[in-house]
Design a protein around this nucleic acid. Structure first.
Lengths: 133, 133, 133, 133
DNA sequence: GTGGTCTAGACCACG
DNA sequence: GTGGTCTAGACCACA
């Protein structure tokens, strides 16, 4: 009953993305979305090992890389903590969030699977990119 | 007398995804979105090497894996061709595509960078997933 | 007979400094002294393992950290290379080098061991530091 | 009625050297340089904790190791005292000390930072070592 | 208990 | 052959 869970990691073993990288990306995502804030404690290495099946060294490496990025800080004896944030959460975010969730529901109802949805988004980002240039 | 380009590969060196996997994913994406169809020719290994900086062996391996997945077919002397599609393009797809493009433009205008956009989408997919369960 | 040796690592097992850190420090030192330059190749992980008794992972970690510092670049299939230098070698350096070498010889002739010499230098740096403030 | 400070510890958090080891090294340095002598009292654990941010257990461990090395002696109720010295201070030491201080000032004036100075000294010690062999 | 490092050995991606 | 990642398990420093 210590602290409320700060972040729950998930691993996609089929994505081709190395697990340590998935952990890093998930922390960065949480920082960008304002889910994690400076001072928050990340789950301990041993917690993560219990939660998802993964080797402690791999978790450790992710945390170490995050520390190198200046985002976290490992305090021996106490844990790993958020040091700096990435979020400059814009006011429009809640609205954007609702819209993207609605879109995803619509896509799912149209019978699209996750891979197809990801493909659509990636394609759309590429399209928008070209227009930007 | 070049055939018109069927697909243009891109490499993201910072994503952590191995290059050969990125090629595979991009072909699968194109198949899902109905951009590539059975009979279409993939760019030759040489073409890909010219287009993006990559080792021919890596391209070769990606094509070989696609063949193992039953998606393509190598015809010695002529090239690699699409054998089977993945798309069951729903009627709503054009609409979905327009909506996601609009959403991405909105997100960009709100000042979100690519990483933040990806974060929002990933988070939304996770949320929708939980609701589904 | 490929390339001439760029740097030879040494490990002091009694210093309390972790081996991976000693490797990093030695590369940084060589950069500062103008011994290594951008484009130079570092010994391969396997070479280092042969040269000094150390685990490949440890060498690897040192190289990875150096890469994170922006100093080196690992090219799979070819090796690890210097990317950026740290040296702004001042004109006075050769003279300073001769003087410090002479001093060390004098100290050794006075019967001082390495630990004592290090102690004197450390003390002197501390003294100079205080004067500076 | 504080006794006058016999030694002031400092911690370099970035050196990679474990804190308990830094304390030990600093006492040994002081002994070699004739700054501490048999009978002198080391600062109490509490003093050290106040002076530098460190866990009492860590200080305790350093003192225990020093005692194991036969250099200090813990007298329950009164403190920790120097039992034996390491210095065979040569007559030339004051002169050597002045010379190294002068050298360091010169190096600093030439624009060298601490890391560069350390690099030069280390390199010079290595060079001298080879000549000795 | 926490994080941090090292060793050992396997497997993968790349050239 | 190169670098890169993962697992397994041991040991250390710190609170």
């Amino acid at each position: 009953m210590e602290a409320e869970p700060t972040i729950e990691f998930r691993l996609d073993r089929n994505s081709g993305v190395p697990p340590y990288r998935q952990l890093i990306d998930q922390v960065r995502q949480a920082l960008r979305l304002g889910i994690l804030h400076p001072g928050d404690q990340l789950p301990t290495v041993r917690d993560v090992v219990k939660q998802i099946a993964i080797n402690p060294n791999t978790v450790h490496r992710a945390y170490r890389d995050l520390e190198h990025q200046g985002l976290t800080e490992g305090r021996p004896g106490s844990g790993t903590f958020i040091k700096r944030s990435l979020s400059k959460v814009p006011d429009e975010q809640p609205a954007l969030q609702r819209r993207i969730e609605a879109w995803i529901r619509a896509a799912r109802e149209a019978g699209l699977g996750d891979e197809a949805i990801t493909a659509l988004v990636a394609e759309a980002m590429r399209t928008a990119e070209r227009k930007k240039k």
